[in-house]
Amino acid sequence: MDVLSFIGVIIGFAALLGGNFLEGGSWSSLVNGPAAIIVFGGTLGAAILQTPVSGLKRALSLFKWIVKPPHQKFKQGIKHVVSWAIAARRDGLLGLENISEKEKDRFSRKGLQLLVDGSEPDVIRHVMETDLIVAEQRDNDAVQFYESMGGYAPTIGIIGAVMGLIHVMRHLADPSQLGPGIAVAFVATIYGVALANLFLLPIANKLRACIKQQSQYRELIIEGIIAIADGENPKSIEMKLSGYLH
């Protein structure tokens, strides 16, 4: 579980609410149902409008990475590759067949199967890099759902503020209602800007970091598989892949 995600959200919103309190404002002044409906509903609707169904499903499935990101164990990955190289040197490439059947990682399993089938190194690289690029692009397209929400939220917040001011203008004859009315109108702007900068955009950036780390791990697997196909020494493979630990 990624504790930093919880800490970041708590610090961000605590700073916002705490600063408002220290300035003499009440927390209740930041609570406004119509503003929340305008900002949250409008932002979500705009993002859904621009996102295809497959991208939306993938975006929702990636959301759990904020709390439980897919940590890539690079040291363990190198150990696996070295063990495959030792098995290939001892039993030949066909000796990897049983290992490939037991491998849980789909990407690694595909590479091992290509080795067992006797594919040329260039073919293996092309197939695996294509898989990596397609998967990375699919995930980055899904992350764009959260980025787009982060872009729309402040604008929708301004729309909410303008709508609130229009409502305030109806009470110009009663000056006592102007101050509170204007304050409530600008709550929508606060919602939009806070939602974008304290939640949506950080989520998108964190997901992109997870995707980048996953791609680097898969690059490690590709280089290891190619080295095995070229018949390199297991010790040499380990030294080559150790660069990914930095």
Rank of each mutant, 00 (worst) to 15 (best):
G55P: 04
H246G: 08
M169V: 09
R109W: 11
R208H: 06
S242L: 08
G192R: 08
S61M: 08
L198P: 02
K110F: 13
E120L: 14
I190T: 10
V31D: 05
M1S: 13
D122H: 12
F13Q: 11
G192H: 02
G231T: 08
F74Y: 13
N20K: 13
Y146G: 05
E23W: 10
G25L: 08
G18Q: 05
I158F: 01
Y146I: 09
L112T: 06
V39L: 03
W27V: 15
E219A: 14
I182W: 05
A196N: 02
L220K: 11
A15C: 11
L112I: 08
L165C: 02
P175F: 00
K102Q: 15
V127P: 06
K64M: 08
V127C: 10
A227Q: 04
K240Q: 10
M169Y: 06
Y217V: 02
Q50D: 12
Y217T: 11
Y146K: 05
L114H: 06
A87N: 06
V81W: 02
I237W: 02
A161H: 01
S236K: 12
S83R: 10
G157P: 00
Q214F: 04
T189P: 01
L56N: 10
F199G: 00
P69Y: 01
L200S: 02
I38R: 08
G18N: 02
L165S: 06
L17H: 04
A47M: 13
G118A: 01
F107C: 01
E97S: 09
G95W: 10
I124W: 05
A35R: 09
I66Y: 06
N197S: 08
G41T: 06
H246V: 15
R125V: 07
K110Y: 13
E97F: 03
T130N: 15
D117I: 04
L94R: 07
E219K: 15
I158E: 06
G25F: 07
I211D: 03
G24L: 05
A14G: 01
L172S: 04
A88R: 04
D141M: 08
I99E: 09
K104Q: 13
K212V: 09
I10V: 15
A209D: 12
H167L: 12
